[in-house]
């Protein structure tokens, strides 16, 4: 008999492993080294982006702007690359853009007391408008500096470098969230803001940090996306909004049930990307993918709705 809490903690992980095993058996070429590396590369974008969203949600703030901020950062990077600025400058500007948007969200939430659900929607709209303003709606496309493209397309041996970057980011994020004072303060702020404040935790700082990390992650993802696609378009990360939230929600069904956590988000992102890769290898038609993603979202929200509600409505 498996204890109830073990099912709560590891049920989704187990389901993910079952999915993996299923694909290994039934999906031809799924378990090949090339495909597994392919999956790891593909998950990098979603993983980094949703880790950012998770940090904000740990502090009980809902960042709905991360996808549009990512697109805006991408456009900033693209415009500088197109204008032949050195790539480190373009990358820095993209990261700064993301960080700035995150800090702005933090300011709106903590100083102007606009609930994050509203303030980040506002930021998202502004970011979208700016992205269109910079591009005039036309994507930046070019055959840019190979050193820059290496960040997204490069390989060391058979291993795409983006996997290595992501591993580093994952390790750092996991460490920050579980092994440091900053991380536990973030959590305390999200779990019980008043108690945290009265225990001497600077909850305002925690909230700003959570949202800033979300913005920074959006900037990082933008670098990867632009370098991978050698182009930047005003809504290039739009699809990630739903997937990023889904990865985080799925993550909240494991390890520390109903609490956003980095490890869960990582597994959540992996499950989503493995599923979409697996469905292609199985020969599934395109609409199956949307249906499956929808089911995952509804199922994981059903398990972890309370936290989301609290973050959304600042209850």
């Amino acid at each position: 008999m498996i204890p109830k809490h073990a099912i709560e903690k590891y049920g989704t992980l187990f389901a993910g492993l079952v999915l993996f095993a299923f694909l290994m058996v039934f999906a031809e070429n799924f378990a090949s080294t090339a495909n597994l590396l392919n999956v790891l590369k593909q998950v990098s974008f979603l993983m980094v982006l949703s880790i950012g969203f998770t940090f904000a949600l740990i502090a009980s703030e809902l960042d709905l702007s991360f996808a549009n901020v990512c697109s805006l950062s991408a456009v900033v990077i693209g415009s500088l690359m197109q204008a032949a600025y050195p790539w480190p400058l373009a990358v820095s500007a993209g990261l700064a853009m993301g960080l700035f948007a995150g800090l702005l969200n933090g300011y709106l939430v903590t100083y102007l007391k606009v609930p994050s659900l509203i303030s980040t929607l506002g930021t998202a709209s502004v970011a979208n408008g700016l992205a269109f303003m910079i591009t005039g709606g036309v994507a930046f496309v070019g055959r840019w500096d190979p050193d820059f493209l290496f960040l997204g397309r490069g390989k060391i041996g058979p291993v795409p470098v983006i996997i290595l970057f992501t591993l580093a980011i994952v390790a750092l994020s996991f460490f920050l969230s579980t092994q440091t004072k900053t991380g536990i303060h973030l959590q305390a702020t999200g779990e019980n803001e008043e108690a945290a404040r009265r225990s001497g935790i600077n909850t305002r700082k925690s909230k700003i940090l959570g949202l800033a990390l979300s913005g920074l992650a959006a900037g990082l993802t933008a670098v990867f996306l632009v370098a991978n696609l050698s182009s930047a378009a005003p809504q290039m990360a739009g699809d990630f909004l739903l997937n990023g939230i889904a990865a985080t929600l799925l993550g909240m069904t494991m390890f520390t049930p109903a609490k956003p956590n980095i490890l869960g988000t990582i597994v959540g992102a992996l499950i989503i990307v493995v599923l979409s890769n697996g469905l292609v290898l199985l020969g599934a038609q395109y609409y199956i993918q949307d249906i499956m993603l929808g089911i995952i979202i509804v199922a994981s929200v059903a398990v972890s709705a309370s936290v989301l509600k609290r973050a959304a409505f600042a209850l």
Partner: peptide, 15 residues
Amino acid sequence: VAARMSIYENIFMGA
């Protein structure tokens, strides 16, 4: 208290 955090995390909250 933060109900969903552990006893020791609550006791040492902020310190």
